[in-house]
Design a protein around this nucleic acid. Structure first.
Length: 567
RNA sequence: UGCCCCGUGGUGUAAUUGGCAACACAAGGGAUUUUGGUUCCUUUAUUCUAGGUUCGAGUCCUAGCGGGGUAGCCA
């Protein structure tokens, strides 16, 4: 047992699981001389989401903190919902998050052992074959207030059970006609102990075992024993399995096998986000989004495509902590985590999303200047680049206001503003089309104020705006993503509505921006900041050489929007 | 309605054996700034309720209230 490594990069305070783990290794006889062994146990029936990231960080983090090991184990006991595509995507996502498993296992690796253990249970009088239909079984199970009734098949002899179970395995019976059940207590206040089903008959092709089996173990029967086989010391799972713990313990005890400790924690809930795998699947299959990796999806692959960094997701998981209280985390916390990381690492560029033309009336017609621009003020090592400047430019439409409030520090008629890394300009004339829309601003520039050219350039004006030279600018597709749901709690839909009714119809906006030349050469996957606007990622799939397509990762904080909203 | 779990600023998480309730984010105010970004300073605000044990309770006990989970041959 080693002690948690001093980690200077985080102000980590121990969560309750770490405290329990430390206590266990200090006190439990069975753990002496051992190191922690955890596992991340996804079912390959969908893509991983941000909630899984919490579990991944926890399980791999625990192993790392205490010098132990963490396995990746696929809980593949229900072939009707699982596939190799999901297995592959899960491995990719775990690696991308920055974790490497010590062993790769599948619950299906243990099907034979599980079967043998079932035989042991039958032999020792702890399991029986039951002929009740699913509906009958429900009736026999009882209700919240009434105990269940014993199945009429509960007292079959060992020989009869052995024979029937063997024939179940041999494919002699139709799906749904028989189950193998543990013989525990139909009167238990805990439903999980009312003779739970261990095996059901399923004539399904399994992505790994093919057609070897036609009986498949239930979660409860497979999970704890898989943990036991792998020597898992701490089996971390979410709160909804809390009521299963007595059963988990019963199996280990009755089978007399290594007994891991199940510890439950609260799953992640994010505001404005759905986290249920079933609902995420529905969004994909019904085409409300463009796939599992749609940048609006809370999947790991969605965040990756969107441009989130693994570091920011790990930091997020660290920030939110681990507890047994079921709360909701504000998505802002996640967004802040990316901003925080990207602020330090992303190079800045000029891009105009909604251009308006600016003509500098006193600037020489054919002159082009190469201006020096800092790539990242937070990181001197990022260096600088040249920015072409000329008579005709584009600025952001929202950086000009004809009747501006006093606190508006950008361009207005007769007003001055600095063009970042360039000159101070003054708006002399506003040109509009017949509909009244501003189409051009005629401005003068002050030649004394060229950035970095000495004391005369130090003149202060209230605002600085970004710009792109018209002659050298490129055009690029930009996708603006907003939250997928309008409701803070999308799963809570009013009567006769579903979470789909809470979808934000404007969660994706595609536009064409004017970008500075350097930005046009950016490699797919690169994350950049569009100055004064937000962080963007050159899409890995749709970008072409010299023609990047940008996904907005997250906007910059916008204090002005807050001020303007107050007016 | 049974059983299990959980209640600490607006949100999330801390608080050695019971010993000055703290950290982050959010919100407000200010400073700096050639990004209304970043950074820095600062303010507001917390133990669900009622009893009990104790010199002393967020922590222990009892009751109440509130929230969540649970009646798949899903995981």
């Amino acid at each position: 047992m080693t002690h948690p490594a001093e980690n200077p990069e985080s102000h980590h305070h121990k969560n309750f699981i770490e405290i329990e783990v430390e206590k266990d290794f200090a006190n439990k006889e069975s753990l002496q001389g051992k190191t922690i062994q955890t596992r991340f146990p996804p079912e390959p029936n969908g893509y991983l989401h941000i909630g899984h990231a919490k579990s991944i960080c926890l399980n791999f983090g625990l192993a790392k903190t205490y010098g132990g090991k963490c396995n990746l184990r696929f809980d593949d006991t229900n072939p009707s919902k699982e596939s190799q595509e999901y297995v592959d995507s899960i491995q990719r996502d775990v690696r991308w998050l920055g974790f490497q498993w010590d062993n790769l296992f599948y619950a299906s690796d243990y099907f034979q052992q599980l079967y043998d253990w079932a035989l042991q249970l039958i032999r020792e009088g702890h399991a029986y074959v039951c002929d009740l239909s699913a509906e009958q079984m429900r009736e026999y199970r009882g209700t919240l207030t009434e105990p269940g009734k014993n199945s009429p098949y509960r007292d079959r002899t060992v020989d009869e059970n052995m024979d029937l179970f063997f024939r179940m395995k041999s494919g002699e019976f139709a799906e749904g006609t028989r189950t193998l059940r543990a013989k525990i207590d139909m009167g238990s206040p805990n439903f999980n102990l009312r003779d739970p089903v261990l095996y059901r008959i399923m004539n399904a092709h399994h992505h790994r075992t093919g057609n070897d089996w036609c009986i498949y173990p239930m979660y409860d029967w497979a999970h704890g024993q898989s943990d036991s086989i792998e020597g898992i010391t701490h089996s971390i799972c979410t709160l909804e399995f809390e009521n299963h713990r007595p059963l988990y313990d019963w199996f280990c005890k009755t089978l007399r096998i290594f007994h891991p400790r199940q510890v439950e924690f609260a799953r992640l809930n994010l505001s404005y986000t759905v986290m249920s795998k079933r609902k995420l699947l529905q969004l994909v299959t019904e085409k409300h989004v463009e796939g599992w990796d749609d940048p609006r999806m809370p999947t790991i692959s969605g965040y990756r495509r969107r441009g989130y960094t693994p570091e920011s997701i790990r930091n997020f998981c660290e920030t939110i902590g681990v507890a047994r209280f079921n709360g909701v985390i504000d998505v802002l916390v996640l967004e802040n985590a990316v901003r925080d990381h990207l602020n330090k690492t992303a190079s800045r560029y000029m891009a105009i999303l909604d251009p308006v033309k600016v003509t500098l009336i006193n600037y020489p017609d054919d002159q082009v200047e190469e201006l020096e621009a800092v790539n990242n003020p937070e990181d001197p090592a990022a260096g600088s680049r040249k920015l072409p400047f000329s008579k005709t430019l584009f600025i952001e439409r929202e950086d000009f206001m004809e009747n501006a409030p006093s606190k508006f520090f950008r361009l207005k008629p007769g007003g001055e503003v600095r063009l970042r890394y360039a000159y101070i300009i003054k708006c002399e004339e506003v040109i509009k089309d017949s509909s009244g829309k501003v189409i051009e601003l005629k401005c003068s520039y002050d030649p004394q104020t060229k950035s970095g050219s000495g004391p005369s350039a130090e003149r202060k004006v209230k605002g600085t705006i970004h710009w792109v030279s018209a002659s050298t600018g490129h055009c690029a597709e930009v996708r603006l993503y907003d939250r997928l749901f309008l409701s803070e709690t999308p799963e809570e839909a009013p009567e006769a509505k579903t979470f789909l009714d809470n979808i934000n119809p404007n969660s994706k906006t595609v536009l064409h921006a004017v970008i500075e030349p350097a930005l046009a050469q950016i490699l797919p996957g690169t994350r950049v900041q569009f100055e004064r606007n937000g962080y963007y990622c050159a899409d890995q799939i749709d970008s072409k050489p010299g023609a990047p397509v940008f996904n907005r990762i997250v906007t910059l904080k916008d204090t002005w929007a807050k001020i303007a909203a107050k007016e």
